[in-house]
């Protein structure tokens, strides 16, 4: 078995989701070759060779691959595909765009966002928005796979010493052209899409004390949210409201501070991956949904948290 793994990067650094994809690839077994396709991305290849578990790094460095346009990237992967039994990558937006094309051009099915490896041709993947997990079996000679990075640990980014092979094929399909991009640069990500959300409730006591939350949020690169009670009390404006009648969020980490946990609030955040509750009332219902609960005075806890992060 031999695996071609497509690196995720920004032409500058290797994105850590790639390390999770390597774990998935190692669970499948066989030699792993990592493809770094981009523009002026030698530094990414230099990162890649150090990743544990790779035997080779392929570097395709051309202006054509700068933005990872699906038409060109998929043509490149298909060109290289003949040597591999598996083509795999973390399900980034670039990969979700390009990988199904690879599968179609190879006339094989694609296994989308796997969360578990059962064997070289059998995998687990979520369906129905994660409300069910399917075990699926591929009949194709080449398995084209995208990986849900959060389901796999990351391999060590240091310690490997693969060699770099330069790939000189360039595919410019000429049908699609990059025009512009607007990357969210603000330190405070938008509530609906943030990876981390920290929300305050009635227990915050005042608009001023939301400053304490904001400081922690800045440390975490988190968005700030609020419960309906905090909005009603006038502490913050209602565009921060998380809940049934506010925004529905599902971040990796949700920290509820001084929020009792009314069912309407839970409806807006219970799909979060990890929930932390900080409340002085140890009977507050929020603790029933929290993975980690800390009972105590938020006016002491928040500054301490800020200092220790």
């Amino acid at each position: 078995m031999s695996i071609l793994l497509i690196a995720e990067h920004d032409n500058n650094k290797l994105n850590p989701v790639t390390l999770s994809a390597v774990t998935a690839a190692r669970q499948i077994g066989g030699e792993i070759t990592m493809l770094v396709a981009g523009s002026s991305c030698q530094s990414v290849a230099n990162d890649a060779v150090k990743v544990m578990g790779l035997s080779k790094v392929l570097l395709a460095d051309s202006a054509v691959y700068e933005k990872g346009l699906a038409e060109s990237l998929s043509a490149l992967i298909v060109e290289l595909a003949a040597d591999y039994s598996h083509i795999i990558a973390a399900a980034s937006s670039t990969i979700k765009d390009a990988m199904p094309r690879v599968a179609a051009l190879l006339d094989v099915g694609q296994l989308t966002e796997i969360v578990g490896v059962e064997s070289e041709d059998t995998f687990k993947r979520p369906i129905y928005a994660g409300n069910a997990i399917a075990t699926v079996h591929s009949h194709d000679a080449v398995k084209v796979i995208t990986v849900r990075a959060s389901a796999f640990d990351k391999v060590e980014a240091e310690g490997g010493n693969a060699s770099i092979d330069v790939v000189n094929v360039v595919f410019d399909m000429g049908v699609s052209r990059f025009v512009s991009e607007a990357l969210l640069k603000s330190d405070r990500p938008e509530l609906a899409v943030a990876n981390t959300v920290i929300s305050g409730g009635r227990g915050m006591g005042s608009a001023e004390s939301f400053n304490l939350l904001e400081k922690v949020a800045d440390k975490l690169g988190a968005a700030v949210g609020a419960s309906r009670a905090a909005v009603d009390a006038g502490f913050v404006s209602n565009d921060l409201q998380v809940g049934q009648t506010g925004k529905i969020v599902a971040p990796e980490l949700y920290i509820a501070v001084g929020i009792s946990g009314a069912i309407q609030h839970l409806a807006g955040m219970k799909e979060s991956k990890v929930i932390v509750a900080i409340n002085k009332d140890e009977e507050a219902p929020i603790f029933q949904v929290a993975d980690y609960g800390l009972v105590g005075d938020l006016f002491e806890i928040l500054p301490e948290l800020e200092a220790k992060l």
Binding site: T135, F287, Q288, A290
Partner: peptide, 23 residues
């Protein structure tokens, strides 16, 4: 036929949370 579905399961339920005693 490229891919067969062998089995469908309910995802693992959320573990009961724990309380921690310090930051």
């Amino acid at each position: 036929k490229h891919i067969s579905q062998l089995k469908v399961e309910t995802p693992p339920q959320r573990q009961v949370g724990i309380k921690v005693d310090s930051v």
